[in-house]
């Protein structure tokens, strides 16, 4: 449905001067809003979550909201988008697109477990929510968060020589993020951290013995673990991305 009031359009593309093959196509694009009507139910998410050790109690939830009411993230910290009750509902009925909007937020749980203590139906809310997060992560439904990317840089760094190189990790992560501090500032900070013993350049100081033999074993273990976690994923959402 096209709408006149452009400020209401999410994802509006506006260009002052845009030419395609010599033709002027400047103006507003993407002015259609998608229908809000939800047209199907798909139980593959809940089937997957239920099959995980953490997600086994998902079917019990009846949406009373006790968990969210006491949630320290939602209620005390005030992170409105973190709503465990809602995450569970979306997963239960397979509202995957709506769920994907929360792929980053879903990890904000600090595992205080008040929800698990209070749930009148015995839903292990904290575990179920983490399981939903895992689903979103494994299906690559959401773009990776900075934290995900840091985790990956960290793992790669560690695997390279069997010992963490903090200076190298900082360099590669920073470069990967497309952000760089001025070199002078970096050197000053690095020197101070080195002198106070808070920066460890592992490979220069120590080595992990036999890493050449150990490393392939670890890499294989990690990839097999990932494959195992992905194997039961619904075919509808092909796995992609991941750590």
């Amino acid at each position: 449905m096209p709408i006149v009031e452009k400020s209401l359009v999410e994802g509006l593309e506006r260009s002052e001067s845009l030419q395609v093959e010599g033709i002027d196509v400047s103006g507003d694009w993407n002015t259609f809003i998608a229908s809000r009507v939800h047209t199907d139910l798909d139980l593959s998410i809940v089937d997957w979550v239920r099959g995980q050790p953490q997600g086994a109690t998902i079917d019990r939830c009846w949406q009373c909201g006790t968990c969210t009411a006491g949630c320290c993230m939602h209620t005390d910290y005030g992170l409105e988008e973190f709503n465990p009750r809602y995450f569970i509902y979306l997963a239960q009925l397979g509202y995957d697109k709506e769920l994907a909007r929360y792929a980053q937020t879903v990890w904000r749980c600090v595992s205080c477990n008040k929800c698990v203590e209070r749930c009148p139906k015995g839903v292990k809310v904290e575990e179920v929510v983490h399981s939903i997060g895992t689903y979103l992560e494994l299906t690559g439904t959401a773009p990776k968060s900075p934290a995900d990317r840091f985790d990956e840089a960290y793992t790669r760094n560690l695997l390279a020589r069997g010992i963490l190189d903090e200076a190298g990790l900082f360099q590669t992560f920073e470069a990967g993020e497309g952000r760089t501090l001025p070199t002078g500032e970096k050197l000053r900070m690095g020197l101070r951290l080195l002198l106070t013993g808070r920066l460890h350049t592992g490979p220069l100081a120590k080595r992990t013995r036999g890493w050449g033999r150990l490393r392939p074993v670890l890499e294989r273990m990690l990839s097999e673990d990932l494959a195992r976690r992905r194997q039961d994923l619904p075919a509808r959402l092909p796995p992609k991305g991941g750590p």
């Binding site: 809000r36 009507v37 939800h38 047209t39 809602y86």
Partner: peptide
């Protein structure tokens, strides 16, 4: 309407 989702639904 899925009143928890606050969205209209047309489900086969």
């Amino acid at each position: 309407e899925d009143t928890i989702l606050s969205r209209p639904t047309e489900v086969p």
